[in-house]
Each structure stands twice: as structure tokens, then as C-alpha cells.
């Protein structure tokens, strides 16, 4: 980790390499931010370019100068050699995805988010042909209390984007992650624990950031038919800045 901002170059001309390609970066950018700006795709789930990085899902793990690190939190250094699209890293990413799939209840054929789901699209991208591990089949009741939105906790991958959006953007703190380790789960911050008893509305940022199918707008489920959705048309790697479009 020798060279840094003491280079004679303009800070906008500093570069690192990603899988052999030269990527410019500016101070403060993380590896994934610089890669995205250059049109390069690094698989990710809990990272959303509109929010501060969380660094929890580890799907965006890369090798930076030989050491594995989350590219959403790691800042590049001049001439850093970053590797992302390698067999070893993609194998590890696929294993992480498979663990996410078996920990929840992900039944894509009956999910309103299918085809617009980042978890599913990332699994397609990484050739995940099976969940490999044994399923947990957890019992996670739905919350249909709210008039406009449904919460299906079965699909939660604990990315915390709804919690971050609600507290950082909406100033409401509707969602939180509770529990620790394998018992971590998404909760609604109301006395009853129900969404209807919060001030959550469809205008909230939190209503539009879920990368999977937890926060679902009611009564529009299959308005766009399966097979005609974002990631049916293009793989996620060819979809620039896959910022979630929110409820379909």
C-alpha cells in the first residue's frame, strides 16, 4: 500500500486496474463506485449507489492487491490491482447467494418481484443452477396490515436498504434489523410490529429500495408479465446502475 495521493497526477487521473482494465477514480470513491462510473459491473446486493455502503452481503468481494475485500467499502489506491471476475471469487459469490436462498423462502414462480429481483438476477449472472445447501424453510408470517404495501419477510436478505432509506432519507425509522448472527431479522418499528401502525407511505424512499420482493406494492403484482421484466430483457451485468425500481 505504498502510493497514494502524493502522485504528481491530477486526482481525477488516478487509476487502478480491474481485471486488467484501467479504471479512473477520484478521492473518496470506493472500488465499486469507480467501477460503476466506468461502466464495469461488480456483482452486489446490499450496495446501492444512492446510499452509504453497508458492507454486509460480501457479494461485491474482490481481490485488491492480493487480499479479499468488499469493493463497496474499500477505496482504491493508485495502480492497485483489483480482480473481480475470477473463478475463485465467482465460486465464493455463488456460495453466498446459495446460502441466502436456503436461509429464506425464495419461491420465484409465485413472487411478484421475479424478473425485477436483484438476488435472482445476480444468481443468473453467476450461473447458480441450484441452491446446493439444505433449506431452512423458516416460518416468517407476512404483514399485510398496511393498505397499500405488503411485507413478505420470507424473501429478506438483510441488506438493510429499507432501514437505511427510512432513517437516513425519510427520517422515519420504520424498519430495523433485530437479533444477532443467524437470528438477525427485519422488524417494523411500531408497538404492534405491524406496518399499518407506522407512518410508512408509498412516497417513502424505503418503499422503493428493496432489491428483493419484501416490500411489495399491493394490487399491481403482475401488471408487467413474467418474461417481460428488466432482467428478463437484459442480464444484470448489462443493466447500467441497477438501482432498484421499487415496487413494480
Amino acid at each position: 500500500m505504498s502510493q497514494n495521493s502524493n502522485t504528481p497526477h491530477n486526482k481525477n487521473q488516478t487509476t487502478f486496474t480491474l481485471d486488467g482494465k484501467t479504471i479512473p477514480f477520484s478521492e473518496g470513491q470506493t472500488i465499486i463506485q469507480a467501477a460503476m462510473a466506468a461502466g464495469e459491473y461488480i456483482p452486489h446486493l446490499c450496495f446501492n449507489p444512492e446510499f452509504k455502503p453497508h458492507g454486509s452481503c460480501k457479494i461485491c468481494t474482490v481481490t485488491a492487491n492480493g487480499r479479499q475485500t468488499a469493493s463497496c467499502t474499500q477505496q482504491p489506491q493508485v495502480d492497485m490491482m483489483v480482480e473481480s471476475d475470477t473463478k475463485q471469487i465467482n465460486d465464493e459469490r455463488r456460495a453466498l447467494l446459495q446460502m441466502l436462498f436456503v436461509e429464506g423462502n425464495h419461491f420465484c414462480p409465485s413472487c411478484e418481484k421475479s424478473g425485477d429481483c436483484q438476488l435472482q438476477a445476480t444468481a443468473y449472472e453467476l450461473d447458480m443452477m441450484s441452491p446446493h445447501f439444505d433449506h431452512f424453510s423458516p416460518n416468517r408470517p407476512l404483514d399485510a396490515s398496511h393498505g397499500e404495501y405488503l411485507l413478505d419477510f420470507n424473501r429478506c436478505i438483510l441488506c438493510s436498504l429499507c432501514a437505511r432509506a427510512s432513517s437516513d432519507v425519510d427520517g422515519k425509522n420504520v424498519f430495523s434489523l433485530a437479533g444477532r448472527g443467524i437470528k438477525t431479522h427485519l422488524i417494523v418499528n411500531s408497538k404492534s410490529g405491524k406496518l399499518a401502525d407506522t407512518d410508512f407511505t408509498g412516497d417513502d424512499k424505503a418503499a422503493h429500495v428493496c432489491p428483493v420482493g419484501v416490500i411489495i406494492k399491493k394490487r399491481v403484482g403482475f401488471a408487467v408479465p413474467i418474461g417481460k421484466r428488466s432482467f428478463d430483457e437484459h442480464p444484470i451485468s448489462a443493466t447500467p446502475h441497477p438501482i432498484v425500481k421499487g415496487a413494480i
Binding site: N105, F107, S130, H135, S137
Partner: peptide, 18 residues
Amino acid sequence: VAVGACAINGGLPAQRNH
């Protein structure tokens, strides 16, 4: 060869699992 969602993750019948 496992063919289809039910062979691969239980599919619709597995929605009774909880």
C-alpha cells in the same frame, strides 16, 4: 438431472413447510 423449480427447491408444494 433435476428438472424444474420443485425438484430444485421444493417449489409450490414446499410452501407447506412452515
